[in-house]
Simulated scan of single mutants.
Amino acid sequence: MSKPVAYSVKAYSAASATSPLAPASIQRREPTDRDVQIEILYCGVCHSDIHFARNEWHFTQYPAVPGHEIVGRVKRVGPKVTKFKPGDIAGVGCMVDADLSCPFCRAGEEQFSPTHVQTYGSTERHIGGPTFGGYSENIVVNEHFALRIPANLNLPAVAPLLCAGITTYSPLRHWQVGPGKKVGIVGLGGLGHMGVKFARAFGAHVVVFTTSPAKKPDALRLGAHDVIVSRQPEEMKAQAGTFDFILDCVSAEHDLNAYLAMLKVDGNLTIVGAPEKPLPVAVFSLIMGRRSFSGSMIGGIRETQEMLDFCGQHGITSDIEMIRMDQINEAYARMLKSDVKYRFVIDMASLKS
């Protein structure tokens, strides 16, 4: 197979770990047989984008183009594509390619495949160099990794579902959250507010843990039944040992053992936030109640489509604030201060202007 032709598109990229994001030109490939080319309409801003741009996970290649919460319009398709046609609306999350032949891919868990190609931070399989994310005019992905968007949902507010949505949906489904279960959501940010919406839609009793008493009204508005201020020892003590499942959505340093103490016997705490530094876990926090501590990332493509369809059925989207592309550095600064309710989404038409 001949190497696909590369072409230039506009983007915003970081030139180094300390430089602000700025206008740039990057290379995309022409679609191969199974590819779709998508004009990006909206791109969510994830905390992982900041980690990546600033090389806080120590694998970033520069120039770095973040963005893996993508909603757009299909412009071109390869000759063997059957899933989409030009004009269709499609979503792209954290993966854009894989060989699709390994056991994980065949099981619908492409996120665990050793061959999966991340939307940014991987190596482009066809033209070489790093993969570039959604802070750009368009993107080319294998059709398998493009997702159908329910027609009744607000497109800008769908974008964060492609990461924040599936990141919270997947562990809630895996641990069988539903009626009769008491579920805690730690942190009411971009991930946490989606966890609240999903846990409530699944029929669980939902409790938000937050360090800020001011977030209580919003937590209740989003669907929580109760709110615990984690800095108040008496509130924590009153509900110790009563939770079936806790989803930890915090990306900053915090005390995991305080939340493990909230679990019942055989309860589970799953972390989806990604703190920069390791967090200590005391062995007795686990063994005294046969509790378990686990992690989760995104879901596979099949589960992500299931999540989008569920959102269509229940009218679930992210709470967002729209920004222009040239406001991205300000948005990063505000995210680090938790000054957003609850997810920034870039109107990518602003990149063209």
Rank of each mutant, 00 (worst) to 15 (best):
F145C: 11
T82W: 04
R76D: 12
E235L: 05
T167L: 05
Y259I: 01
I70R: 10
A258G: 12
C94K: 05
I228D: 01
L260D: 04
V96C: 03
L191Y: 09
K264R: 11
H174N: 12
S294D: 11
G192I: 01
M322C: 04
H47F: 14
V208S: 05
I328Q: 01
F198H: 02
L220M: 04
W175V: 00
R125K: 14
G72S: 00
Q27K: 15
P130V: 12
A252E: 11
S8I: 11
D319H: 14
A224P: 06
H47S: 10
G273R: 00
F198Y: 08
E253M: 11
R29N: 13
K216P: 00
P278C: 03
N154F: 14
K215P: 07
E109S: 12
K215I: 08
F84A: 02
G108L: 09
E306V: 01
L263P: 04
L100T: 00
V92P: 06
G312K: 07
A6Y: 09
N55I: 02
Q232N: 12
G315I: 02
V283A: 15
N142E: 13
A204E: 06
G129F: 07
A261G: 14
L260H: 03
S296A: 11
Y135A: 09
I316S: 00
E253W: 07
E306Y: 09
G189Y: 13
Y42Q: 10
D309S: 14
S294M: 13
V272Y: 04
E253L: 12
D266K: 15
G189S: 11
A14Q: 01
E330W: 02
T242S: 14
S212T: 04
G300T: 09
V36T: 03
A331L: 02
I346N: 08
D244L: 03
S350L: 14
C249G: 06
T270C: 15
R54K: 14
R28D: 06
E30F: 09
F209D: 03
V140M: 13
